[in-house]
Each structure stands twice: as structure tokens, then as C-alpha cells.
Simulated scan of single mutants.
Amino acid sequence: MEDNFNINDSISGIWEKLGEWLDSLILGLPNFILAVLVFTLFVIAAKYLGKLLDRLLRFKVRQDSIREITIKIMKVVVIAIGFFVALGLLNLNTVLTSVLAGAGVVGLAIGLALQGTLNNTFSGILLSFLPELQIGDWIENNGYAGRVVEINLRSIVIKEADNNYVVIPNSQVIDAPFKNFSRTSRSRVMVDCGVAYNSDLEMVRDLTLKTISELFPPKNNEEVEFMYKEFGDSSINFVARFWTNATTNREILIARSKAIIEIKKAFDAHDINIPFPIRTLEFNNKLNIDGKTSE
């Protein structure tokens, strides 16, 4: 069998191939250097843009965790753009297409697997920019009431009046209505009461208005309101509404308590009766002396 292998030809072919690679490297060296410079510039730009974004977010976002994740996302996006631009300068279009396709598939898989988590994350970002909800506000949401102590990328944490903490997922806060007591410095308080049927209703009205106005003086266009609501079972019921400085539910309860005490004092001083429910029992059968009942 004739041996066709020639070591000299093989070595010559290797040197020829290495020469072609060296020529390609020398020809592509300017593009390579340019790609490295462009990528480095994008990395530096991401660093300084992160600092600039941090300064801007400090005026809008009070949560450190939200600012940090937003800055990191921005940096990743800028660096990724620089990476793709560098690949384009190296004429690696095939690699670029493969990377984009792989990133799309991976992103879809991650999105489906972490659908609930991503929902809470994006909801947390929205909440961080929502002026109607800030740390320190007293809110009511999903049946819970308390002061907001933390807003992170997964949930908000509120401290209730009983000193317990409640963790509410961000998506539930976004999707459900919430009541914020702290966005306004003045709140309207309502007090319900009732007086006896033989009371002088006009005097009751004037006395209640006078008592509350002295205790909680109205400001600007505010006024103390008094309206009779209904004929109750044992009283004529009314509601009194007034304004006070209150940014929490506790302050509203304190104001209502003060109003009730002063109204009771004023009614007692003027002999106005606040009746309690009365139940009358009727016995139709009469009892004779001999112990027998008569129809």
C-alpha cells in the first residue's frame, strides 16, 4: 500500500493556515481595537449614567432598594447595547443573531417561570414612583390599616395599630383601591348620635354646632355640619361632621372621642336626653287571687 502521507506537506499546510489567520488578525485588528474601545466607552458611560440616575431618583424615590435595582437595570441595558455594537463592528453578525435568539428564548422561559414575581417587581417599581403612596403614610388596603414602613420590589410592609407588621404583595396594592390618610393634612370626622323624641330639635342642632365649633374651629371654607338622619326606634338620630388636623386613623379616633365627650357634657348641662333602646313587655293574661288565669 502506497503511503500518501507527507509530513512536509502537512507542516507546510499548517504554516499556510496560520499565515491566513495572521493576515486576518492583522486586517481585523483595527476593528477589534475599535470594538474594545466602544465597549469600554459604554461601560464607562453606564457607570456615570448610574450616578446621574441615582441623583435624579433621590428626589423621587425614597426607597434605597428601588433606586439600586433601577440603576442596575439601566447599567445592564447600556452595557448590553455596547456589547452588541462591538459584535457588529467585528462583523460577527451570525454570533449576534444567535445571541439575540438565545436571549429571547431564555427571557421567555424566565418570564413564564417567574410571572408572579415579575408582576410584583414591576408593581413595586410603579409604587416607588407613585406620589399617592410613600413611606410613613397611614393607609388602608386589603382589609389592613397601618403605617407604611417599607416598599421593596416584592411587597410593602405596614405597621398596624396593634404593633404588628403586615406584608402585602405589590400586585395586590396596585390592583386594589387603598385609602391614604396622610396625603391631606385635614380630615373630616363624623359623629353619630340620637336625642329623645321630646327634645327641642332646633336647640339640639344649635348647641351641637356651637360645641363642636369651639372645640374644632373650622378653617377657610370649612364648616361644621349637622343633619338629622332618621326617626329611630327610641331616638331621633343625627350626624355631625367637622374638620380637624389628622393624618392617621388614630388621630381621627381621638378627635371623634373628644367630640363625643364635649357633646355629652353640653347635653347634660341642658337636660337633653340621649336615650338608650327601650323594650316594652306586655302581659295580656291576668292572674286571679286563687292562682287561676283568666282569659
Rank of each mutant, 00 (worst) to 15 (best):
G50M: 05
K51I: 09
L52S: 12
L53S: 07
D54I: 07
D54H: 07
R55V: 11
L56S: 09
L57K: 06
L57P: 06
L57D: 00
R58T: 10
F59D: 13
Q63W: 05
Q63T: 11
D64S: 10
D64Q: 12
D64W: 09
S65D: 13
I66N: 01
I66T: 08
R67T: 03
E68Y: 13
I69S: 15
T70K: 11
K72A: 15
I73E: 01
M74F: 11
M74A: 15
K75Y: 10
K75I: 12
K75V: 09
K75E: 14
K75Q: 14
V76C: 14
V77I: 14
V78G: 01
I79H: 01
I79E: 08
A80D: 11
I81C: 11
G82K: 00
F83S: 02
F83A: 13
F84Q: 07
F84M: 09
V85S: 00
L87Y: 03
G88R: 07
G88C: 05
G88L: 06
L90K: 01
L90Y: 00
N91I: 08
T94Q: 11
L96E: 07
L96I: 08
L96H: 01
T97R: 12
S98M: 10
S98T: 07
V99E: 03
V99F: 06
V99R: 00
L100D: 04
A101D: 04
A103H: 07
A103N: 09
A103V: 15
G104Y: 04
V105Y: 04
V105N: 09
V105A: 03
G107R: 05
L108Q: 05
A109M: 12
I110H: 04
I110S: 08
G111R: 05
G111F: 05
L112K: 10
L114I: 10
G116N: 13
N119D: 13
N119M: 14
N119K: 15
N119S: 13
N120G: 06
T121K: 11
F122M: 09
S123Y: 02
S123G: 04
S123E: 03
G124Q: 03
L126T: 13
L127P: 00
S128P: 00
S128K: 05
S128W: 02
F129M: 12
F129I: 14
L130W: 15
L130G: 14
E132H: 07
Q134G: 03
I135F: 00
G136R: 02
W138A: 11
I139N: 03
E140M: 09
N142G: 08
G143A: 01
Y144Q: 10
A145I: 12
R147L: 08
V148F: 00
V148C: 04
V149D: 10
I151E: 06
I151N: 02
N152Y: 03
N152R: 08
N152L: 05
R154G: 12
S155L: 08
V157N: 08
V157L: 15
V157R: 09
I158Q: 03
I158C: 02
I158F: 01
K159M: 12
K159A: 14
E160F: 04
E160L: 07
E160P: 02
E160A: 09
N163D: 14
N163A: 10
N164Y: 06
N164L: 09
N164G: 05
N164P: 06
N164K: 11
Y165F: 11
V166T: 14
V167N: 08
V167Q: 07
I168D: 02
I168E: 00
P169N: 06
P169E: 04
N170H: 02
S171G: 04
S171L: 07
